[in-house]
Design a protein around this nucleic acid. Structure first.
Lengths: 100, 100
DNA sequence: CTATTATATAGCATATATGCGATATGCCTG
DNA sequence: CAGGCATATCGCATATATGCTATATAATAG
């Protein structure tokens, strides 16, 4: 018979990530995927700073709310043209570089 | 009668560009298009540093020479996944940001 | 509670990035 | 000259980014 009510404790995302990061292959894979999340978060951050809703930002970009939601969900493999448009909306300069 | 052999002096690209840059609308348009050329040049630069032919770089990227040629011609609106692959080939880190 | 607003997600249409092969061109070198 | 190598360009196939509508879900105001 199994023990009842055994509480399974799930680690937080941060703990989980820290654990996975000990694995070299995971670090590499994460690094090569994480740029999507980083850009997603950066856009969210800029939008929030401007106190814009997704719908309002969408209008400035001549698109729709669902497109912004997809971007911010980290589900978007952006093109540089799109990133440039976003930069322009926020009066920022798009910087892309390959650094050591 | 027109004067014969009047030499028409064309400005260099740099001179032409400097002149156009005095126009505000042109500056804006150029800024929003130039990122393609900048990335194109950056890839060419990295490839040359590694003494690779387009064909060799293509092999590392699991693609073909014509794809690399298109990239370096500034005709490519890259996706970040592609930029990440390129960064990885050159042992670089892809940095994308919106700066003031 | 209801109404409103914000965000997430699904499904689909269309534009375009990516990939490939063929071929042209230019530049060497023998 | 011919032959080989590097690059550019074309046309086309396929994968995917972008854009849209509808709808679900969540949070908040009233």
């Amino acid at each position: 018979m199994e023990k009842k009510h055994k509480k399974i404790v799930y680690p937080s995302f941060e703990q989980y990530l820290a654990q996975q990061m000990k694995n070299k292959a995971f670090r590499k894979a994460y690094k090569e995927e994480s740029h999507r999340l980083e850009i997603a978060y950066r856009i969210l951050q800029l939008r929030k700073q401007q106190r814009l809703s997704q719908k309002e930002l969408a209008q400035k970009l001549n698109t729709t709310q669902s497109v912004i939601a997809r971007m911010e969900a980290g589900q978007q493999n952006f093109t540089t043209d799109t990133l440039q448009k976003i930069a322009s909306i926020f009066n920022r300069e798009l910087k892309i570089d390959f650094v050591k």
